[in-house]
Deep mutational scan, measured.
Amino acid sequence: KHCVKCNKAITSGGITYQDQPWHADCFVCVTCSKKLAGQRFTAVEDQYYCVDCYKN
């Protein structure tokens, strides 16, 4: 599998969101770069925000 963000191979520790593979380090808030894996977040038009950034 290849990460949908960076297009590099996922060798271990990847996550899946909406049936797409991601590196955990690539699945981050677009505003603050906080890792979103296992966290609550909001998706708006294929942009992902942590709860704090989305509220602001």
Rank of each mutant, 00 (worst) to 15 (best):
A43G: 12
T11H: 04
C3F: 01
K5D: 03
A9Q: 13
Y54D: 10
R40S: 12
Y54T: 07
F27M: 10
C50S: 01
K35Y: 14
D25T: 09
S12G: 10
G38I: 08
V4T: 03
A37Y: 08
V44D: 14
N7C: 14
F41T: 14
T11V: 04
A43E: 05
A43C: 15
C6M: 03
C6E: 07
G38Q: 09
D19N: 11
Q18E: 14
N56S: 05
N7G: 14
H2D: 15
Y17V: 14
K55S: 05
W22R: 09
I15L: 13
G13V: 04
G38C: 06
T42Q: 06
P21F: 09
P21E: 07
G38F: 04
K5I: 05
T16W: 04
A37C: 07
K5R: 15
Q39W: 09
A24I: 14
Y54L: 04
I15R: 07
P21V: 08
D52V: 08
C6K: 04
K35P: 05
C32G: 00
V28S: 07
D46G: 14
Q39R: 08
V44L: 11
C29E: 01
Y54V: 06
P21W: 04
T31I: 09
N7S: 14
Y54M: 08
S12W: 12
I10C: 06
C32M: 01
V4D: 08
R40C: 13
G38E: 09
G13E: 11
K35C: 05
A24L: 04
K5M: 15
C32T: 00
C26N: 01
K34R: 06
A43L: 07
V51H: 11
I10P: 04
D46T: 04
Y48A: 11
H23D: 00
Y17F: 10
C32S: 00
Q39C: 08
D19M: 07
Y49L: 05
C26I: 00
N56V: 15
L36Q: 04
D25L: 08
D52A: 12
C6V: 02
S33P: 10
T31Q: 06
Q20Y: 06
T11D: 06
C29S: 00
S33A: 10
I15S: 12
H23M: 01
A37D: 15
C3K: 02
I10D: 01
Y48W: 09
E45V: 03
Q47S: 06
P21I: 03
D19F: 05
D52R: 07
L36Y: 01
A9D: 09
I10V: 06
D52T: 07
Q20I: 11
W22C: 08
V44G: 10
G14H: 03
K34T: 03
N7K: 07
K34H: 08
A43W: 08
F27S: 04
Y49M: 13
Y17W: 06
L36W: 05
R40D: 08
C29K: 00
N7E: 06
Y54R: 09
A43S: 12
W22L: 12
Q47L: 14
V30L: 14
G14E: 15
G14W: 05
E45L: 08
K1V: 03
K1G: 02
Q47W: 08
K8S: 13
G13Y: 04
Y48C: 02
A43D: 03
N7I: 13
Y17D: 07
I10K: 02
G14P: 06
T42H: 02
V4R: 03
I10H: 00
G13N: 11
Y48G: 09
F41V: 13
V30N: 10
K8R: 05
A9S: 12
D19H: 05
P21M: 05
N56F: 11
C32E: 00
N56Y: 03
K8C: 08
T42R: 12
F27E: 02
L36S: 03
Y54F: 08
A43H: 10
R40P: 07
K5E: 13
G38Y: 05
V44W: 05
K8A: 13
C29G: 00
E45G: 10
K34I: 02
G14F: 02
L36P: 04
Q39V: 10
V30T: 03
I15H: 15
Y17E: 10
D19G: 12
P21T: 07
I15N: 03
W22G: 05
K34P: 00
V51F: 10
C26V: 00
P21H: 05
A24V: 06
V30M: 09
Y48P: 09
H23N: 00
Y54W: 11
Y49C: 02
Q20P: 03
C3N: 02
T31G: 10
T42P: 04
S12C: 03
R40K: 14
I10T: 06
I10Y: 05
A24C: 11
D25N: 03
Q39A: 11
I15C: 07
V44S: 11
K55Q: 03
K5P: 02
R40W: 04
Q18K: 10
E45R: 10
V30F: 11
G13Q: 08
N56D: 06
L36K: 02
V51W: 10
K8L: 10
Q18M: 06
C26A: 00
A37V: 08
C50Y: 00
K8Q: 14
T16P: 01
G14A: 13
G13H: 08
D46V: 03
E45W: 05
F41P: 14
A37E: 10
D46K: 14
P21L: 05
K8H: 14
D46Q: 15
I10N: 02
C32W: 00
Q47C: 12
V30Q: 04
C26L: 00
C53W: 00
Y48H: 12
H2T: 05
F41A: 13
Y49F: 15
D19L: 07
V30Y: 10
T31D: 09
V51Q: 06
Y49H: 15
K34E: 07
W22H: 15
Q20K: 11
A37S: 07
A24Y: 15
K1R: 01
T16E: 02
